[in-house]
């Protein structure tokens, strides 16, 4: 039996953001080379009301990745997840999960999936232990108290195992729902806004759980409104808006492709205006007059930084410090969604 959190295949658990550049070790490269674990083709969804919530969506999820689905309210994220998980019927197109068609071969497809829905749906009068055990049975797995104990401990729910769910706080309930989704050892985990209403510390803990899951080979698809969450967690990011996938990209690639960088040049003295000789750089003067800000494109062949520094010196402006800032995913996201 595959245990919930086996010893990570990678030599050391990824400690956090700083190690992100060392992410693509052979283990993961091998996994990513396999056929997609979820393949969505030409998927459309029209609700009974006539509303078209998804419009010809095509999307492949790679085995073992963390995929973040970003989009504004009502974009169709939950609809997409609901269809893949069997909660909503599709109108057109097809979806395979682990190679199994979700309609024809629903048993095989669904048994691979754990779902944590967006809304908190729980049985108020059940105990935590009973409801998590129930989920495992529902997915046809034999009893395994040790496994459930492990999950509850990992999610800091162990001391609540005999509590009725109605007595738990919202954040605890959400963790109960995660425990339910993990109870049957899924290969794919859907987290529909997993950290909504969860405090900062627990959110970090949850991210830790997600990373450990990924290390054990679980593919994770999450939706979120917290861009920093996608930025911190995801390997790839998909942006959905008005029922259409408008972009799917490696996170790093996305940041680079669309990323603008900002160079802030701190000055020794203060200036009142940008000298005319520097007009071509489109500089912006900081409010206090002690710095100038230069936007440049990391994609460009030349950033123009060297010549800017030269020209600044020629203009007799003395520099005390430099710093650069990469535009965040949030900036990218906002500009993308505005475009359409």
């Amino acid at each position: 039996m595959r245990s919930y959190l086996p010893v990570p295949t990678r030599p050391t658990p990824r400690p956090g953001r700083s190690a992100a550049s060392t992410r693509h070790i052979p283990f993961q490269t091998a996994m990513l080379a396999m056929p997609p674990i979820i393949s969505v083709s030409n998927l459309s969804k029209t609700y009974g009301s006539g509303f078209k919530a998804l419009n010809n969506v095509n999307l492949d999820i790679k085995r073992g990745e963390i995929f973040a689905l970003l989009g504004p309210n009502g974009a169709g994220k939950t609809t997409l997840i609901s269809i893949i998980c069997g909660i909503a019927n599709l109108s057109e197109g097809s979806v395979t999960v682990g190679g199994h068609d979700i309609v024809r071969d629903y048993r095989a497809a669904r048994s691979l999936i754990g779902l944590v829905p967006q809304e908190l749906h729980t049985d108020s009068f059940e105990t935590v232990w009973a409801t998590v055990s129930f989920s495992r049975g529902l997915f046809g797995k034999p009893k395994n108290p040790a496994h459930i104990e492990k999950i509850l401990k990992d999610l800091s729910l162990w001391d609540k195992k005999d509590s009725k769910i109605i007595t738990l706080s919202g954040g605890m309930k959400r963790r109960v729902m995660i425990a339910k989704a993990l109870s049957h050892e899924p290969q794919i985990l859907f987290l529909d806004e997993p950290t909504a209403g969860v405090d900062v510390e627990l959110r970090k803990g949850m991210w830790e759980v997600v990373r450990t899951l990924q290390a054990s080979g679980v593919t994770i698809i999450l939706t979120t409104h917290y861009i920093e969450e996608a930025e911190e967690m995801a390997d790839r990011i998909g942006v959905i808006n008005k029922g259409e996938i408008i972009l799917v990209e490696d996170k790093a690639g996305l940041m680079q492709k669309l990323g603008k960088k900002e160079l802030k040049v701190h000055l020794q003295g203060r200036i009142d205006a940008i000298p005319a000789s520097l007009a071509t750089y489109n500089l912006e003067l900081s409010d206090d007059g002690h710095a100038v800000i230069y936007d440049y494109d990391t994609k460009g062949d030349r950033t123009g930084i060297t010549s800017l520094l030269n020209d600044l010196r020629n203009a007799g402006i003395r520099i005390s410090d430099l710093d650069t800032r990469q535009s965040s995913l949030e900036d990218i996201f906002v500009s993308l969604v505005r475009q359409v």
């Binding site: 909660i87 629903y106 749906h121 729980t122 049985d123």
Partner: peptide, 14 residues
């Protein structure tokens, strides 16, 4: 009514 039906619908059961 309470929404827990999601789990039944998403489970590998006929």
């Amino acid at each position: 009514f309470v929404g827990t039906i999601y789990e039944i619908l998403s489970a590998p059961i006929s």
